[in-house]
Every structure is written in C-alpha cells, then in structure tokens.
C-alpha cells in the first residue's frame, strides 16, 4: 500500500512539474493557457495529498482558477487581434516585439 501511494505521489508530482514546464515553454498562447488550466486542476490533487484544506485553500484555487479565466480571455484575443483593432486604444499599432 505504501509503495502504491509513493508511486501515485511520484506520478502526481512529476506530472505537475511537467505541465508547468510545458506551459512555460509553449510558444502558442492558447496552448499555454490550456496547459496552465490543466496544471491548476492537477495542483488541486496535490493540495489534497498535502492535507492542506484547513488552510482555506479554496481561495487559492479560485485565485488560480481566475488567473486561468483571464488567461483564456487573453488567449482568445491573441488569435484574433491582428485583424480587429480595438476601438478604445491608441491609434499607433506597435511593431512586432522580439521575445
């Protein structure tokens, strides 16, 4: 049983790290956003394993979840923005920014 839990934990942690790195290194915004949301969900499992709910981590989850929402909203724009300027912005569109 203990070994089983250890293996489970290892998978848990390794996947968590893998998701984080994959999100960070992903070039495409919408892909990064999706990976991040997956990461957020996976993270909640980690919280559970760490017996941390007494810390009122619901708040933290909402914070991270909302970050994901903002991220998705932004990712939608990066896909369409090229052709649709926003009315309330400065007129001068910027040139491409090198990373």
């Amino acid at each position: 049983m203990a070994v089983l839990i250890l293996v489970f934990d290892l998978i848990l942690v390794a996947t968590l790290l893998g998701l984080a790195l994959a999100a960070l290194t992903s070039r495409e915004p919408s892909r990064a956003a999706t990976l991040f949301i997956a990461f957020g969900i996976w993270l909640s499992l980690v919280w559970a394993r760490l017996q941390a709910p007494d810390l009122a981590l619901a708040e933290a989850a909402i914070g991270a979840g909302f970050g994901g929402a903002l991220m998705l909203a932004a990712a939608r724009r990066t896909a369409h923005r090229a052709t649709r300027g926003r009315g309330d912005e400065e007129t001068e569109p910027d040139e491409a920014h090198p990373p």
Binding site: L24, P29, L43, G67
Partner: peptide, 24 residues
Amino acid sequence: ALGGDRAAVAASLRYLLVSLLGSI
C-alpha cells in the same frame, strides 16, 4: 495588456503564466 495590440496581449499572457506559476 492595456497597450491593447496583439503583441501586448500576447506578452501579458506569457507574463501572467510566469507570474501564476511563480506564485504557485
């Protein structure tokens, strides 16, 4: 992201990702 153009939003998105991962 108030800069508004696509580059600004994309840059902010990356910033958000790093910022959230850093906090976590």
